[in-house]
Design a protein around this nucleic acid. Structure first.
Lengths: 232, 232, 232, 232
DNA sequence: TATGAATGAGGTTTCATTCAT
DNA sequence: TATGAATGAAACCTCATTCAT
């Protein structure tokens, strides 16, 4: 169950430069996830990626640079897949609960990415913005639908998000099990004003598992017929 | 408006060694609060405390050591004063809301301490334990009193605590104003199952301001009424 | 007002390889003139020449190599044009004064070349030799003609040359204006033994301006009168 | 005939810090003299001074810092001793010739210092100022005394100085012998307008040798009776 | 020829820590 | 206790140079 090297996989069919860059990013994810963004030295990253230290600087300006690249990629991918998975859900209560649960599922399915994401949220303000946009949309939808009885503003969003992140962290660190997603979701709905009964029902409804993936099938030769969705 | 040097103040009447140690701790708080636990070098701490770098090692094994000393002290003091201020409150709903609000008040009244505390919570697991004991007690009291309709366990406590911390952080970083305490408190009560009306009433009830102090020997011209102090 | 790219211009009608080489040399002159011979990296030179770093090594062994190529070329060109401009002057006093003045004019008319030359004189002994031959000839002519009352040897030549170079540097760095040529020339003649009056007359006599060029194939719309050019 | 370690010698009776600093400066002089100010790495300097690389940074901010320290010291010492040696000479013609000759003698007597000084003149504009002040004074004195028939201004001073420096460089590099001082001095006087005969007489008059020294006798314990001159 | 990714030695600088005073 | 100079490992980064394409 070693590291999955999602970036390397993604760059499989790209040029040499892109592949080297991807190897560095995978190495960085692994170390960032384990030790945070400060601890790993550039040399360590290069060594783990199995290349000369100088090569790092061919592809990134410095550690901050790769950290941001890695982090933004992860956040985008996470959010994109999350959004995709909820495309056909309309009810805000359902959406909010599902977002929390699936987000935790996804971020948990690839521990390094989840950890790196978790660290990134605190380290880089930009990453937050990316994610929060979606969250805000769902909360406002709920307000419009009359399902939530609280004011939706930055304060609420921050609070809400921190609950999700805390649950995620608990799962990643092994303190909590798979039910964590449902538990926070239920608490969040209660907080928002959803009646306790409905909160419980929605938050605990069975949900198919999600796995974080990165588009992998051949790119360059180009799949002639665009299938409905190239991913599971 | 400069730093308050609470440790130095506390050690005012102690031996020279204790006073030197306190100066180091005050310097450390100031730097930790501003730059986190990694960034400041031992030399910087010593320089800010206005003593030779070698002196640091007379009093602390290493940076980790002083960081722990500092944060544990802060946490203890914070919790102690919080507890003291709520000694005569019995109702769990009131206690829980008040704890959240006053905690934020206290931690906010001395920005460096608040920031250092905030950082410590993530960096040192031990500091959490200290604080959480009190929190658990109040939540369990509420469960026994039938005021809360959720299961009280580690998961709930973590979630609850992260909400408070998020509000605290928002205030410290200037994103939110003084009402943040009431806002989280209200959200927390709703989450716990307190009816929306009561949650609002309790969370927004006027409360006298608290200021973090390190009670010790008679202050400057010395207020006679204050009892000697709980510490040497 | 941008750089003149004299080498590129000179190689205009040569093979591709020669043109690439010339572009590198122009880039090198520009950087050497600005930052000296050590500071610019091979990568910088290549980047300024708008080609891949590897290409550099197709044309030059290393930085020393291009530095020499560049400065020897500059020195030759400078001296050649200087010599050409004085072909019909016979009197040593006139020649010596004119050489100094026109040398400064030329080296000044193309600031990068002037600066690179100036730097080269100190860095590469070889470059000196090239220039000094001409200088010695004129000084010896003056001695034969009885115009100079000092012994002409290496010491005198060095001293004389350093005076010219100092004036050149002053002009290039903006400390002195256009009259610098005449001033040194006058001082030099006095030093050599030319009576003060004559020294002044000769050194300040009006002189048409010279511009450093790399004569090659017909210029833009092509001045017909100029003979084909002394080079391929 | 190894290196003389003048700084170390000077700091003999000072504190430990000053002595370490002096050792670094001596090492720096040796390397700067041989390779210029760019080539030697900080590590090389520390290694030659026989201490850990980190120690360098206890005493100097960076290479520029030590280069300046070294250079300013050398220039000051050189100028001070030169000035001292000419204290009782009044005639400007004599002074000017003597200054040039003795300056070359001094700078030559301690080759490393001379070389370092020579390099410094080109690298640090500030060092020039120091030296040039004295030079200007003598030239202006000559003008006042009616001995010189040229205008004394920056241009003249630069030219004059470059002649001296060129002679110095020639001696240091072994191209010229001990008579170089007299030769330039004679040329300089001619240039300034001193009749050829007088120029020769003054410039070649026998002069006792000078040696660059640094005050060396016991400092701290303090010599009770100030002798007329503590130096040879 | 031209490319540009990759290399790794070597430079600069910081810093926790020791130790003689 | 307090000092602060000294240490050296280790971080960061640059760069001349090679080499497969």
């Amino acid at each position: 169950m070693g590291p999955t090297r999602l970036f390397t996989n993604e760059a499989r069919n790209l040029g040499k430069s892109a592949r080297t860059r991807a190897r560095l990013m995978d190495a960085a994810v692994e170390l960032f996830a384990r030790d945070g963004f400060e601890a790993p030295s550039v040399n360590e990253i290069a060594r783990l990626a199995d290349m000369a230290n100088g090569t790092f600087y061919v592809h990134f300006r410095d550690k901050q640079d790769i950290a941001l690249a890695v982090t933004v990629s992860i956040a985008q991918e996470l959010v994109r897949q999350l959004d995709e998975a909820m495309a056909d859900v309309d009810d805000a209560v359902e959406r909010v609960a599902m977002a929390t649960r699936r987000f935790i599922d996804l971020a948990t399915s690839e521990a390094d990415w989840g950890n790196a994401f978790f660290r990134a949220i605190w380290a880089f303000r930009d990453v937050r913005g990316n994610v929060i946009t979606y969250l805000r949309a769902d909360l406002e939808r709920g307000a419009r639908q009359g399902a939530f009885t609280v004011e939706v503003d930055d304060f609420l969003i921050d609070t809400f998000a921190s609950m999700t992140m805390t649950a995620l962290f608990g799962v990643l660190s092994g303190d909590f099990g798979g039910e964590a997603g449902s538990r926070v979701a239920e608490l969040q709905l209660r907080m928002l004003g959803v009646p306790a009964g409905r909160a419980k029902t929605v938050a605990w409804r069975k949900l198919p598992n999600l796995r974080l993936t990165i588009a992998t099938l051949p790119r360059d030769p180009a799949p002639r017929v665009r299938k409905p969705s190239p991913r599971a």
